[in-house]
Design a protein around this nucleic acid. Structure first.
Lengths: 224, 224
DNA sequence: ATCAAGCTGACATGAAGCTGACAGCTAGTC
DNA sequence: GACTAGCTGTCAGCTTCATGTCAGCTTGAT
């Protein structure tokens, strides 16, 4: 899943980024409100972590403009201001969650996971597809009580496909969700990841269908 | 959909063209204002991407003359001039959107899509016909919750027919919409594409009628 | 009946996609 | 530091599929 972190504190920024990357997110970091606003006009994210105290354009303003463009991307607001007034203002503007500094890393991660879940699967931690169950909390995929042995890339791809249910996901979209700016992979790399994951899923009756020229979609295997 | 790109910067021109072609547009490129103006007197487009800083005739002038001929083709202005004055001037002259360089490719594409949608279907991304729903955003056609498996050409043709609702569309018009100059296909090729699409649509109660000597039109199948 | 317009099955070609092999990289272990 | 195992991207050669052309047919107007 692709995450945007808007934060100007240098130390916090680095720590959060490293931690999110380690958890398997594709993370982009930006440190002022104006750039964030511009970026959000054309780049979609699965979740945004937004500090309120930003240079150039406040977090409030970034959020307001994002919502006024009709985007419903989940936003978690991060701030030093503890008073209720700002909390209310943030939620009124369309924030989905709110965390005041100082906070525990684990709590932030849990809330981010919850936001992604809420947006896609109606809040439940486990999503089923065919004979598979995907657990978004520890990012593991189970078939019955067997845990599939998948690599990080494979899990990221499966997560995306399973969250998009039976919709076509283009190679470009896959590239966007698996990689942040500084990484860049070829279309062929996506094909390779698909090929490897496909092989592992087939055993469990789940198929990755190719829609030529458009992308891939997850489907239950038809037996006949 | 057919797109005209008026741009004199060599590098930008090439990049944009390649990207639009990849997205499935039929793209014509022209690099000076005078030729653009001349071309626009006889060739219709679905959307025009227009640079302001052009040799021979400015983008402003091209736009002004286009509008004075009564054409309401959506126009997106592209420019290095960032000041508000020019933005206002452009919009006053009848531009539909405005983007200042440097910009991200993805943003330009998103805005072009938005313009096409706005122009044709009143802003909604989905258009229905009979039992079919055509999603202009991700260029997919659904019958209920089944996605039709259509090739790129078939989708392009269906898009055109469905946008023109129950009006007759001539073979020449179809050729214009599916191809830019450098590609050229025969009338027979159109017949073949129609034949293939027709077969697939029949199952879903939608018929492509032939109006001999005039063209084709989309109709709901009458059962008797 | 004649002829042009249109239809469609068969085929060739090239692009899109697949996958085994390989090599560079990372993390863990001693 | 050196060794190992596993992950992951690139490449090359292969397969699959979309699409234009052609040929021979059907349809419809006069």
């Amino acid at each position: 899943m692709r995450l945007l972190l808007v934060e100007d504190d240098l130390i916090l920024k680095d720590g959060l980024e490293r931690s999110f990357v380690k958890s398997g997110y594709a993370v982009d970091v930006i440190s002022d409100g104006e750039s964030a606003n511009k970026l959000l006009t054309y780049q979609e994210y699965d979740v945004i972590v937004l500090d309120l105290g930003l240079p150039k354009l406040s977090g409030f303003e970034v959020l307001k403009r994002l919502r006024s463009r009709g985007a419903n991307t989940p936003v978690l607001i991060l701030t030093a201001l503890e008073d209720t007034q700002n909390r209310v203002k943030g939620l009124d503007l369309g924030a989905d969650d709110y965390l005041t500094k100082p906070f525990e890393l684990a709590e932030l991660e849990a809330r981010v996971r919850a936001l992604i879940r809420r947006g896609v699967s109606g809040g439940s931690a486990k999503i089923g597809f065919g004979g598979l169950t995907f657990d978004t909390t520890n990012r593991q995929c189970m078939a019955g009580d067997i845990a599939l042995s998948l690599s990080a890339r494979e899990i990221a791809l499966l997560e995306l496909l399973i969250l998009k249910a039976a919709k076509v996901v283009s190679k470009t979209k896959i590239m966007e969700h698996l990689c942040s700016w500084d990484e860049e992979i070829s279309e062929n790399a996506v094909e390779v990841i698909v090929s490897r994951l496909r092989k592992k899923l087939l055993i469990f009756g789940v198929e990755i269908k190719t829609i030529r020229g458009l992308g891939y979609l997850l489907a239950k295997l038809e037996n006949n």
